[in-house]
Amino acid sequence: MHDIDKGTLRRRQVAARTAMPDSIRNESGRLIRDHVLEMPQVTSAGTIAAYYSVGTEPDTRGLIFALWKRGSYVVLPVLLPDGDLDWASYEGPESLAPGPRGVLQPVEPVRGTGTVARADVVLVPALAVDVRGRRLGRGGGSYDRALARVGPQVPTIALLYDSELLPSVPAEEHDQAVRAVARPKQGITWLPV
């Protein structure tokens, strides 16, 4: 695994997700939602930075709705032209509209790129994470920039399918690690970041 480059691993992970039956994806989203909702760090969080899943990503729609319904302040990313992420509040499913790359994003006023630094928990998309917390994203660098703003005590949690916690993921200097992963069968795994 050490000799594989990011592009090759990214293609492999995307292909595996594409081959996964919808029933497995849907059940995985429900299980991840339940694991995350039970986390003490999430239960006590005032502000949660999350993301609205797209395509074959583990589904976050039910999780975001449940967090919002129980009174958490949920902020979702708004992709900026330079690839950075601004953040705006989620005010229910009707508060979203299509944005760049087909991603649904909030129509509420943006709060600034530093908003993620004030979150109590940050939920992060990933194609894979390794046992040291190194994350493989889609390759745009948006989340690496956002995670660089998050303090070391804030739980940053990547949502993955069961097979996506790997022994090693290729990483570069600018890549930001996550502190935990949430998977359908294994639940929450804290990583030695």
Rank of each mutant, 00 (worst) to 15 (best):
G55L: 03
G55Y: 05
E57F: 07
P58R: 00
P58A: 03
P58Q: 01
D59F: 06
D59G: 12
D59V: 14
D59E: 15
T60R: 03
T60K: 03
R61K: 13
R61V: 08
G62N: 11
G62Q: 12
L63C: 04
I64R: 02
I64H: 00
I64K: 03
I64Y: 02
F65R: 13
F65K: 09
A66D: 15
A66E: 15
L67D: 03
L67R: 05
L67A: 04
W68M: 00
W68E: 03
R70S: 01
R70C: 00
G71N: 10
G71H: 14
S72F: 08
S72T: 12
Y73L: 11
Y73P: 02
V74N: 06
V74S: 08
V74A: 07
V75D: 02
V75I: 14
V75E: 00
L76Q: 05
L76V: 07
P77R: 06
P77L: 07
P77H: 05
V78T: 09
L79G: 05
L80K: 15
L80M: 15
P81K: 07
P81A: 05
D82H: 11
D82Y: 08
D82S: 10
G83R: 11
G83E: 04
G83K: 08
L85I: 13
L85N: 11
L85P: 11
L85H: 14
D86F: 12
A88V: 14
A88W: 03
A88I: 13
A88L: 09
S89P: 06
S89K: 09
S89W: 03
E91Q: 15
E91V: 12
E91T: 15
E91D: 14
E91R: 15
G92Q: 13
G92H: 13
P93T: 09
P93K: 07
E94M: 00
E94F: 01
L96Y: 14
P98C: 05
G99A: 09
G99F: 13
P100S: 06
R101H: 15
R101V: 04
G102M: 11
V103Y: 02
L104K: 02
P106C: 10
P106K: 12
V107S: 06
V107P: 02
E108D: 08
E108K: 10
V110Q: 11
R111V: 10
G112N: 09
G112P: 14
G114W: 07
G114L: 12
G114R: 08
T115C: 08
T115E: 15
T115W: 02
